[in-house]
Every structure is written in structure tokens, then in C-alpha cells.
Nucleic acid binder design. Sequence first.
DNA 1: GGACGGACCTACTTTTTGGTAAGCCCTGTT
DNA 2: AACAGGGCTTACCAAAAAGTAGGTCCGTCC
Lengths: 121, 121
Amino acid sequence: MIAFKGRTYTCPIDVTFSFINGKWKVLILSHLYRYKKRSYSEIRDNLPRISEKMLSQQLKEMEADELIVKKTISSKPYRVEYALAKNGKAFSPIMEFASKWGIRYLKANGIDYLKDQELYK
Amino acid sequence: MIAFKGRTYTCPIDVTFSFINGKWKVLILSHLYRYKKRSYSEIRDNLPRISEKMLSQQLKEMEADELIVKKTISSKPYRVEYALAKNGKAFSPIMEFASKWGIRYLKANGIDYLKDQELYK
DNA sequence: GGACGGACCTACTTTTTGGTAAGCCCTGTT
DNA sequence: AACAGGGCTTACCAAAAAGTAGGTCCGTCC
């Protein structure tokens, strides 16, 4: 048992995953990993089915956890840019691995993602 | 969007994480990764706070997903043994990574897990 | 024969998470 | 002036996940 910031964790793995639990965090992370800098609406449009409530909520939590950084690139018309922060970048190996794993798994189950991806989206 | 077995996924990463979502699955996986073969009560006793409901529920789902295998090692007194199955073993790199990441993160925040772990449990 | 431990299962409640729909402020466009 | 974005927020509700508190069925041990 590890006590840390008001929560208790079973082990370090528990600590690590506490950062990315939730349906959308890994997806946002992987999106930013791929595109480096993205606006709010770009992220939203790339994650079909996410609601704005969820998106802004997760972005906030991830910012607080230093997984991502938000930069105001213009204030006259208010425009922002999200990118990976240090903690977020540190998760890249997991993103890479999970992506490959998923592609392999899908292939083993009759779906060729790399070949078919133009069909989706 | 990927349609697969009645669910839809945003991308392969989404597919991968669908196997290990839930508070306990990674922890069970990492436990089996460390100990190879464990009985029901050994797993339970190593995951403080897990309820038996949660444990047996997750074990069942993980068995169905071929993350783990259950073997009946004795039926006179009914005894079982859980171990990683092929899909589960394939997650080992994530376990390793997440463990190291967590330890590093804790250290950066003033907790030396490796040094202090005898204090817990 | 009674207590104990292993390996579960079940009904019920609570908590957490996620979804819906609407609205706000600002600016650029027509 | 009206509308279309962009970047959000909020109140309210539904669904899903997890916790609680039991119980069952063996079989071994004292």
C-alpha cells in the first residue's frame, strides 16, 4: 500500500495507471503523440463520440497531471493549442506498444486495420 | 471507427486498453506476471481492498479474454491455479514499463518505493 | 461434530463515470 | 445584423462500475 496525495495505491503500476484511467485519456494522449500540436476542435473531431463535456474535463485533469500542456496561441480570437508535456511524453512507449498490440490482435481476428483504415473516418 | 464483436473502437489503442480497463485487471496481471501461478486466495490476499465479488468477476472476464488460464489442480479438495495465458503474457512489456514508470514517479515525489516497500504489507 | 479455509456466488446499494442538451463569449464573415 | 465557428461551462440524468454483506459447498483438522 502506498499512500500518496490522499489516495492509496496497491503498487507502482497502480500509480501509473491512475494517470490514464478513463475512456479517453489514452486516446487523447495518442492523438497528441501523433500530431504534436492540436486545437480543441481538432482533438474533438478526431475522437468521434466524445462529448465536449468529457473532452474539456479530461483535458483539464491531464493538464493538472502534467500529461499535456495548453498554450494560448491567440487571445484576440481565443485560440489554444494542446501538446504533450513531460509526463505525457513519458507514456509514448505505452502508446506505441498498445497500438501495435491492437493492430496485431485485430489482424488475428480478421480485421486488417492498416489496410482498411481508410474505410473508417 | 472499428466495429468488432458488437462494440466500436476509436483505434487499435482503444482495442488494446479495452482488455485491461477496470481497477483490478492490470494489478491481477502484474501479480501473475511476478508469481507465475497463484491460487484464488493468494491473489486476493495480495490485492488488499479487492472484494471477492470483484476478484472472481475480473478473473472470469480475463479468462474469457484469454489473458489468464485457470487450472483445476485438485478436485477432491477443490483447488485452482491461475496463470498468464498468451494474451496476458503479451502485456508483460506494459507491466514492466508501468512498474518502472511508477517507481520513478514516486521517487520524483519523495517516495522511495524500493527502499520503503517492507513498510507496506 | 464443529470450526476453518478455499473457492466461489448473489442481491442490493452506492459511487463513479459518462451522456444530453443547452448556453455563453468572442470574432470573423457575409 | 445574422450566422458560423472556436473554446468552452453547466445542470440534469442514465448507465456502468464497484462496494457491502451476506451465503453456499466442499473437505480437512482437531
